[in-house]
Simulated assay, not measured.
Amino acid sequence: MLLDAMVARDARTVVLVEGESDRVALETLAVRRGRDLAAESVRVVPMGGVTNIGHFLDLLGPAGQGLRLAGLYDHAEEGYVRRGLHRAGYGAELSRDAMAALGFHVCVADLEDELIRAVGVEAVQGVVAAEGELRSFRLFQRQPAQQGRPVDAQLRRFLGTRSGRKSVYARLLVDELDLDRVPRSLDGVLACV
């Protein structure tokens, strides 16, 4: 966590994200949009979970290195982000729109949900098949806890069942995206940095 923050020393802007899959998704989308974040001195820093946001805001924000900050977070974690921004001096009782104006954008419900909806369930299953994991996904669907759940919910859960899978699919699904259907949260973060 602190190592990633130290990487930010040469940055003018840091995008704080919950984990590695968020970093991969943003960096992949930036490339697809023709941007070179490293050349622009923008760093995407995984925090190891949103509960660490206060530490990163203290280290990198106005009271620390004074860098321009932005972020991507899951809907369920909005309270952590709001409280962290408040403690760091960005304002009290910030609305979602106010946080977005500061550069902090919400994924509803999370990155995987956003990407599955944007790419489409059938296309995501095609990506899973191309990765040679369709059989594993079909076995996963047969588990009692998955039976009767919508396919998009099954896919979302499947992406988190093996270490590193979310990051692999973050890149693959962003590559699969029609650039006119990019989730607003991802485009919003990139637009403000």
Rank of each mutant, 00 (worst) to 15 (best):
35 R>N: 03
41 S>N: 14
52 N>M: 04
129 A>L: 09
131 E>F: 12
78 E>T: 10
43 R>S: 14
47 M>W: 05
129 A>Q: 03
96 R>W: 14
148 G>C: 04
189 V>D: 08
114 E>Q: 09
39 A>I: 08
81 V>L: 04
165 R>F: 14
22 D>I: 01
66 G>P: 02
99 M>G: 03
160 G>D: 12
108 V>Y: 03
1 M>H: 11
141 Q>C: 15
95 S>I: 01
87 R>F: 09
100 A>R: 04
187 D>A: 10
181 R>M: 14
13 T>E: 07
55 H>Q: 14
82 R>N: 06
92 A>H: 08
38 A>M: 10
159 L>W: 07
94 L>R: 08
64 G>K: 00
109 A>F: 14
154 Q>V: 03
54 G>L: 14
119 V>M: 06
176 E>L: 06
166 K>P: 06
71 G>S: 00
187 D>M: 07
173 L>K: 03
144 P>L: 15
20 E>R: 14
54 G>I: 13
141 Q>S: 13
50 V>G: 01
141 Q>W: 00
137 F>L: 03
119 V>W: 04
97 D>Q: 06
33 R>P: 01
113 D>T: 15
27 E>T: 09
76 A>C: 09
131 E>V: 10
115 L>N: 00
165 R>N: 05
110 D>W: 06
136 S>A: 12
172 L>M: 12
189 V>E: 06
118 A>D: 01
57 L>D: 02
54 G>E: 11
107 C>S: 10
94 L>I: 00
29 L>A: 11
138 R>Y: 10
155 L>G: 02
11 A>F: 13
175 D>G: 01
59 L>F: 09
37 L>V: 14
62 P>S: 03
96 R>H: 08
138 R>H: 07
45 V>T: 02
182 V>Y: 02
92 A>M: 10
138 R>S: 08
179 L>A: 01
136 S>T: 08
188 G>D: 03
102 L>G: 02
25 A>P: 07
189 V>Y: 13
140 F>L: 04
125 Q>E: 15
39 A>N: 04
13 T>G: 06
184 R>F: 13
130 A>G: 11
183 P>D: 00
25 A>G: 04
137 F>R: 01
161 T>A: 08
90 Y>P: 05
50 V>T: 14
46 P>M: 01
78 E>N: 09
163 S>M: 11
138 R>C: 11
164 G>Y: 11
83 R>I: 12
40 E>H: 06
